[in-house]
Design a protein around this nucleic acid. Structure first.
Length: 489
RNA sequence: GGCCCAUUAGUCUAAUUGGUUAGGACGCUGGCCUCUCAAGUCGGUAGCACGGGUUCAAGUCCCGUAUGGGCCGCCA
């Protein structure tokens, strides 16, 4: 048996450290066993997927040093590798299941489902999933709905008794009682598959032998097993990796942590350090060795050495590792990489038009514009309070804007201006009140080049992080102010 | 609310067939080095969540409790 693993990211956001993390382990496992590793794009959510994100994910994985043998860009024997291009395959498989009686059409509206969920949550009912209403529709009723053009989904029929046992390489056997599994949607009303169907069908057709994915998938694995069984397919081996955590131990999230690989690249984390650091989360090299190359890791890799604790994504060790890599670098190589990173001609060419009118001598170039060269900025948090706004209003605006910024797909002067002005229209906050705090947040200065141009040059990852920092700074400032007021009254 | 996963210092982890003064690293901290800082180097700090069992012997096995987390979407 040839080992085959995959990373299956969804292009719905910036390249995530978790994707890099899981990709790294899939890659190592495949290569260690002389197998292959494939990249599959899971873009079945039409409303959220975007080609820009797909490209960014591929670039980020390459940056990390994780290379795939098959994928949308390089092709391969099991293509296409983009799920949006495999729609018919899923529909055929869905039809097959309906024919065999393992799946059924469901005509329930999302409104009804929402209401049901809310009610059950309120009543603290043990099961929150689908109640199976359409499971017992007669063929005539189904036909009538179909004839009437009622939108519908296809659901998997789960067994109502017995147990499903998941076998996990790291965790042993996990037993789930079937009665509490609801009938998962396989095909959405837009004809696209959900993760569950697409994932199982593709893993089979692409001959994936080992599914290495995050822990959050454990609860839906019984559904996947049911699908393999219904199709009569051989089940791959499951390996559920621990989930990366915020400092408060919750699942890593962009509100509490920079989660974009682009950000780490932007602040000058070396890819070899990032990869080394990611490997260290949940994995130990052995022999007390903490710094190792990809080749060294591959040499001794053993998936059984993964520990199941919940690793907190803390940057101190990353910084230390990065320093180690910098110190060992040959000075010419270091110079080359530093110039590429911070003083490349493309970057300077974007900065200069903004700075040209604002300097009188070259020696002012960097000190007058430190925000272009340093990843963090410093300022008085009180400056983040917009004109005619209270602290609370400013905080709300900046925090909401940070969310809007996260979802911004295209980062150009025009799109940034549209985003900021659109935000003002949507929220009723005046540009006069908003733009200065944003300027402070991204540059730390009251006087700076024009905001949109400056944000374009700084790039999305840096602006995002500075916005998050601003929100956090203002939050702390608010607490201080409130405490003072209390003391005075 | 139900189910599931996890639990070694502030953080990442070792100890993977029960036997160690529980090891390493980051961080923090002290000394040395040194024109300063950093780096380097030598030291220090701090841990088996708790309670029961099994055993000559438990971080390790079993049970319970607690804590943290995940999932319960026409998201993935």
């Amino acid at each position: 048996m040839t080992v085959k693993t995959r990373i299956a990211p969804s292009p719905t956001g910036d390249p995530h450290v978790g994707t890099g993390y899981i990709a790294l382990f899939n890659y190592c496992f495949a290569k260690k066993h002389g197998g292959s590793f494939i990249l599959r794009i899971e873009d079945t959510d039409q409303s959220r997927s975007a080609p820009e994100y797909e490209q960014a994910i591929m670039d980020a994985l390459k940056w990390l040093g994780v290379e795939w043998d098959e994928g949308p860009d390089v092709g391969g024997p099991s293509g296409p590798y983009r799920q949006s291009e495999r729609k018919e395959i899923y529909q055929e498989h869905s039809d097959l299941l309906i024919e065999k009686g393992d799946a059924y059409r469901c005509f329930c509206t999302s409104e009804r489902l929402d209401e049901m969920r809310k009610e059950r949550l309120a009543q603290k009912m043990p099961t929150l999933g689908y109640d199976g209403r359409c499971r017992h529709l007669t063929p005539e009723e189904v036909q009538k709905n179909l004839d009437d053009g009622v939108p519908h989904v296809v659901r998997l029929k789960m067994p109502t008794d017995g147990d499903t046992i998941i076998s996990d390489r790291l965790r042993g056997e996990i037993r789930y009682p079937n009665y509490q599994q609801d009938d998962q949607v396989l095909l959405k009303s837009d004809g696209f598959p959900t993760y569950h169907l697409a994932n199982v069908v593709d893993d089979h057709l692409m001959e994936i032998t080992h599914v290495i994915r995050a822990e959050e998938w454990i609860p839906s694995t019984p559904k996947h097993l049911r699908l393999y069984e219904a199709f009569g397919w051989e089940v791959p081996e499951f390996i559920h990796m621990p989930l990366l955590r915020n400092k408060d131990k919750s699942k890593i999230s962009k509100r509490k942590n920079p989660t974009s690989l682009l950000y780490y690249k932007a602040i000058g984390v070396l890819p070899e350090a990032m990869r080394n650091f990611l490997a260290l989360l949940g994995y130990s090299f052995g022999d007390d060795i903490e710094k190792f190359t990809l080749a060294e890791l591959l040499e001794q890799f053993d998936i059984g050495r993964v520990s199941l604790g919940e690793p907190v994504f803390e940057l101190e060790k990353l910084n230390w590792l990065n320093g180690l890599y910098i110190r060992e670098m040959d000075p010419p190589e270091l110079q080359k990489r530093l110039v590429e990173h911070l003083f490349n001609s493309e970057y300077l060419a974007k900065i200069l038009p903004l700075v040209q009118e604002r300097i009188e001598r070259f020696d002012e170039f960097i000190p007058n514009n430190p925000y272009f060269f340093s990843s963090s900025v410093e300022y008085d948090p009180a400056l983040l309070i917009g004109k005619k706004l209270t602290i609370g209003e400013s905080l709300k605006a900046l925090s909401e804007l940070a969310d809007v910024m996260d979802a911004q797909r295209i980062w150009t002067v025009e799109s940034i201006e549209a985003m900021l002005r659109g935000f003002c229209e949507d929220t009723g906050v005046k540009p006069r009140s908003l733009f200065m705090p944003v300027r402070i947040a991204v540059s730390g200065r009251k006087a700076s080049p024009p905001l949109f141009e400056m944000m374009d040059v700084l790039g999305k990852p840096i602006c995002q992080q500075r916005m998050r920092e601003a929100v956090s700074n203002l939050q702390q400032h608010k607490i201080l102010v409130e405490r003072e007021e209390k003391a005075n009254s």
